[in-house]
């Protein structure tokens, strides 16, 4: 190739290309005094910053994620009817659900569907999740959503399992017993069901005594909320669900994803994971 081009033509090309290259790199060197601003994609200047350093110093600054960002999953468990559709559709099987048939009235979801099942376990292993979003699409009540929280790495892989169930294991145990009892006498109404454990001094309907030791979970529809509340918002120890608040005031939150995520220390261990 070199021989065909001729010695002098080759030399000229060599000098010219070296000079062009050196000019190009020097221009970048000079432009490095400027840097691109970490503006979000909806900013008009997002695509109009061709020069300067492009590095975003991530932990110190971040390009805000749109509110429609599809990252960590969140389940608003109050609206979950336990239909298992999400667990079935998930291509990597990272959702584990255990349901218990409720003997009492659980009320309805916010879009009016009847709730019939306790969700004794609703674990999403975010370490396996491939963020395909299929689970959110099939969810009939739209309680399973993807949030814009994207930085939630953990040192312990178990902490990547997010627990959304609305029962503690003890409560679940009790509900299970109730459900079995109800199944054993299918025709009997729930209220009169003489339980296998007639609690102390109970002349009253069997239901009440059981509810009392469990503390306040007697009419489990709405009033059960205080006791089980922590289970609903696994990601948020200090405040109520961070994702919820993020949706409420998007702009303030987008500027600092860490403030949203780091502080609460996502420690969703409301319950202990028993076995996988």
């Amino acid at each position: 190739m070199m021989a065909q081009r001729g010695y002098w033509a080759n030399l000229r090309t060599g000098l010219r290309t070296v000079w062009t290259g050196l000019r190009l790199t020097f221009r970048h060197l000079k432009q490095a005094r400027r840097r691109r601003a970490p503006v979000p994609i909806w900013d008009p200047s997002y695509f109009r910053q061709p020069d300067g350093q492009v590095t975003i110093r991530y932990p110190h600054e971040a390009i805000p994620v749109p509110d429609t960002g599809r990252y960590r999953l969140h389940n608003h468990i109050d609206d979950c009817i336990g239909c298992l559709k999400c667990a079935r559709v998930c291509p990597v099987d990272c959702i584990t659900i255990e349901t218990i048939k409720a003997v009492e009235d659980l009320g309805t979801t916010s879009n009016g569907q009847k709730k019939r099942l306790w969700i004794a376990r609703f674990d999403i292993d975010m370490a396996k999740c491939c963020y395909c979003g299929l689970c959110t699409m099939v969810c009939p009540t739209e309680c399973l959503t993807m949030t814009k929280v994207h930085d939630f790495s953990e040192f312990d892989r178990d902490n990547m399992v997010y627990h959304f169930a609305n029962l503690t294991p003890e409560e679940a145990e009790e509900k299970r017993r109730l459900a079995e009892a109800a199944a054993a006498r299918p025709t009997a109404p729930v209220r009169e069901g003489a339980s296998e454990k007639p609690a102390a001094g109970s002349g009253k309907p069997a239901f009440a005594p059981r509810a009392v030791p469990r503390g306040q979970s007697a009419p489990p529809g709405q009033a059960g909320a205080p006791a089980t509340r922590p289970a609903f918002a696994p990601g948020a120890v200090p405040g109520p669900e961070p994702e919820q608040s993020g949706e409420a005031e998007p702009k303030a939150e987008t500027s600092s994803p860490q403030a949203e995520e780091r502080k609460p220390t996502p420690r969703p261990f409301v319950f202990k994971r028993k076995e996988s």
Partner: peptide
């Protein structure tokens, strides 16, 4: 730093 600036990076910080 020079290499970083030439490549529009920031270099050690």
């Amino acid at each position: 730093k020079v290499s970083a600036f030439i490549q529009d990076r920031v270099g050690p910080l």
